[in-house]
Design a binder for these strands. Structure first.
Length: 176
DNA sequence: GTCACCTTAGAAG
DNA sequence: CTTCTAAGGTGAC
């Protein structure tokens, strides 16, 4: 089943040592987080974008964004985020949300396989669908899709680019 | 309707 | 080892 989707109200940059992420907020919370598009060239353009600076930003969103910045930097350093901003998963299916909720339970520094995740949500046959849900995760890094590996400790795939997956795992001290 | 996807256990060469 | 098969959920076309 698909819940009704909320419009994305505000788009804000999050500057980190790994590049500039882009956070999308709805009235209900953080709706999406994008990996940096470019390593160098896009910075100025992104920072200068009108939606990112200048206009009035609703107070709740300012608070969520402060949290997102802190939590993202902490996560990129391989540490455990204490608490997350509210995540707006409206518009996503129940199946996807259950997969993402399950991923949030994976402790920092540990991994699960797609198969284990499928079992934990009570759909042991939906292994490939779990892979699909991981790829559809709108909030990578914070919802740790990178901690999901293929069976036998193999890396598996990653829509954001396998080097990101390797890097995130390495930051948490996970070796393959 | 058809296809491509962050999968996987099993069977066969 | 490699290659093939079949099975789920979902969005793009």
């Amino acid at each position: 089943m698909k819940t009704s989707s909320a419009r994305s109200l505000v788009v804000l940059p999050v500057v980190t040592d790994d590049g500039i992420f882009t956070a999308h907020y709805s009235e209900n919370g953080l709706a999406a987080l994008d990996f940096p598009k470019m390593r160098r060239a896009g910075r100025d353009r992104l920072l200068a974008s009108p939606s990112a600076v200048g206009s009035k930003i609703p107070a709740p969103i300012r608070g969520w964004h402060r949290l997102t910045e802190a939590v993202l930097k902490k996560a990129l350093a391989g540490r455990v985020p204490k608490k997350l901003p509210p995540l707006d998963w409206s518009g996503k299916t129940d199946f996807q949300q259950s997969v993402w909720r399950e991923m949030l339970k994976i402790p920092c520094g540990e991994t699960r396989s797609y198969g284990q995740l499928a079992e934990n949500i009570g759909k042991p046959a939906a292994v490939r669908a779990v892979g699909g849900a991981c790829g559809a995760n709108p909030v990578p890094v914070l919802v740790p899709c990178h901690r999901v590996l293929a069976a036998g400790g193999r890396l598996g795939g990653f829509s954001g680019g396998l080097n990101w997956k390797r890097r995130l795992l390495a930051r948490e001290g996970i070796v393959l």
